[in-house]
């Protein structure tokens, strides 16, 4: 049995060895469900999102929820203190988490969080960026690519206008922000592989 679940969306990384795989899975699911619901509520408030087909709304959320959570919870990863804060509010040291089996994904998440924080985005900018993360026409299984693409372009234009207005002397901010989209894809893929391994070997 796996003894650790190194994900801050869990209450604790320590798993009860007396619990079965499905029990651990159910507890984990219960702990991250409120955060997923918040992502759905956020999506509903994106102008135009509800006009997409139900099928595309679900697929965008399925594909993008991890990335949205990564942006929203970047502050849980403190690279200076070398800690990760879990749902219980308890901080765990990186070395401790490495001992529990955390590897390359944790390094990459720290790197991403630091770069995102370095952009010093306002709440409004972060919100619009999160909408751009979610509404991506190149997610797999999108049935009406044109509609998603049109909404994505509107959101990117709005983000660009806002960033240019708020950071007139930092011309690279918008570009650096768009590059974060690729970083998030990469993190999402790494995370999916970990999830799969966890499901196979809980």
């Amino acid at each position: 049995k796996r003894m650790y679940l190194v994900c801050p969306m869990s209450v604790s990384p320590y798993m009860d060895p007396n619990k079965s795989g499905p029990q651990i899975w159910e507890e984990f699911s219960t702990s991250f469900t409120p955060a997923v619901k918040e992502v759905v509520e956020f999506a509903k408030r994106i102008p135009g999102f509800r006009d997409l087909s139900q099928y595309d709304q679900v697929n965008l959320l399925k594909a993008g929820t991890f990335e949205v959570l990564m942006v929203r919870f970047a502050s849980l990863f403190d690279a200076k203190e070398r800690t990760v804060t879990f749902l219980s509010g308890r901080k765990y040291n990186v070395d401790e988490l490495r001992f529990m089996g955390a590897g390359e994904l944790l390094n990459s998440v720290f790197e991403f969080s630091e770069k995102l924080k370095a952009l010093h985005l306002s709440e409004e900018e972060m919100s619009l960026f999160t909408a751009v993360v979610l509404v991506s026409a190149d997610r797999s299984g999108i049935e009406n690519v044109n509609s998603v693409e049109a909404l994505q372009e509107t959101l990117i234009r709005a983000l660009r206008t806002l960033i240019m207005k708020n950071h007139p002397n930092e011309a690279s901010t918008f570009t650096r922000l768009l590059l974060k989209l690729a970083d998030l894809r990469s993190l999402n893929n790494m995370h999916s592989e970990e999830l799969l391994a966890f499901k196979i070997h809980p």
Binding site: S29, K37, V40, Q54, V58, K62
Partner: peptide, 27 residues
């Protein structure tokens, strides 16, 4: 690889959270 979102039960959570919206809006 297999669909991790479905494995996690994520799709079910998402559908339920969206449901209120879908009830009053034709697809």
């Amino acid at each position: 690889f297999a669909d991790p979102a479905s494995n996690l039960g994520l799709e079910d959570i998402i559908r339920k959270a969206l449901m209120g919206n879908f009830d009053d809006k034709p697809d």
